[in-house]
């Protein structure tokens, strides 16, 4: 028996594509949010921080349900996307991507925010007195010093997207090649009593998750030693 059939393989490919795009988007969207959260003295900090962290505690089905409503034909985002001529997002890959970005946001924002906070005020001030403007300082000082935070955020964001299930089911449904990712595929195999097929995918996920955590702990361990 083939370990993975074509449907399985397409689910794996889709999962990797979704996780990669989600991670890239989150690095672009999450970095300014993390910077703002790390630097602001605004009273809105708590509010925004809590909103970003919400997916950590909400059941994915709840988040997925509300996103479905908001992106649906009657929801504000649904009306907007229709007006823009892109149609409706639910049950499409872009819709899944939007859902993943929200769902994995805290896993990217928080490590990056912590890294920004750990840098402190002093290196930024030192750079300013050495003629570096704000953007120059950000790219020449902040980004390199926060590298461990970016790496941790990227790894966690990627891995967490790979592992999502509830939100995919709510927003994406279960359309082969479009929204059927590995976690959903495993569910289908189990439903159909195809335990051998389920094992191949599930075992692969366990291995993947373990390698991610191993690399994270090894990497953070060595960078912590270097810092101290």
């Amino acid at each position: 028996m083939e370990p993975l059939n074509t449907v399985d393989l397409s689910a794996v490919k889709l999962t990797i594509k979704l996780a990669t795009l989600t991670t890239i988007l989150l690095l672009f969207i999450g970095t300014p949010i993390a910077w703002w959260l790390a630097r602001t003295k605004s009273r809105l900090k708590g509010l925004i921080g809590a909103l970003v962290a919400l997916p950590l505690v909400l059941p994915p089905t709840v988040l997925g349900f509300y996103m479905l409503v908001v992106m649906g034909p009657q929801g504000p985002i649904g009306q907007l996307t229709q007006a823009l001529g892109v149609g409706l997002l639910p049950f499409t890959f872009p819709g899944l991507l939007v859902g993943s970005v929200f769902y994995s946001m805290p896993f990217v924002v928080q490590p990056v925010q912590n890294a920004f906070e750990a840098i402190g005020e002093r290196p930024l001030e030192a750079a300013a007195t050495l003629r570096a403007g704000p953007w120059d300082t950000f790219f020449s000082i902040v980004v390199p010093l926060a590298r461990p935070g970016f790496l941790t955020g990227a790894i966690l964001g990627f891995a967490h997207t790979v592992g999502e299930f509830g939100i995919v089911l709510m927003i994406g449904g279960n359309i082969p090649g479009k929204t059927r990712v590995v976690s959903v595929q495993i569910y289908d195999h189990v439903e159909a009593m195809e335990y051998a097929q389920a094992h191949w995918l599930a075992g692969g996920m366990v291995l993947f998750a373990f390698l991610v955590m191993l690399s994270l702990y090894t990497f953070n361990g060595s960078s912590n030693r270097r810092m101290s």
């Binding site: 002093r122 290196p123 001030e125 030192a126 750079a127 300013a128 007195t129 010093l145 590298r147």
Partner: peptide, 18 residues
């Protein structure tokens, strides 16, 4: 600060660690 022609030495080390 970055537009002023000044040098600043801080109380504690402020070298860039990277």
């Amino acid at each position: 600060p970055h537009q002023r022609s000044l040098g600043y030495v801080f109380q504690e080390a402020s070298l860039f660690a990277h």
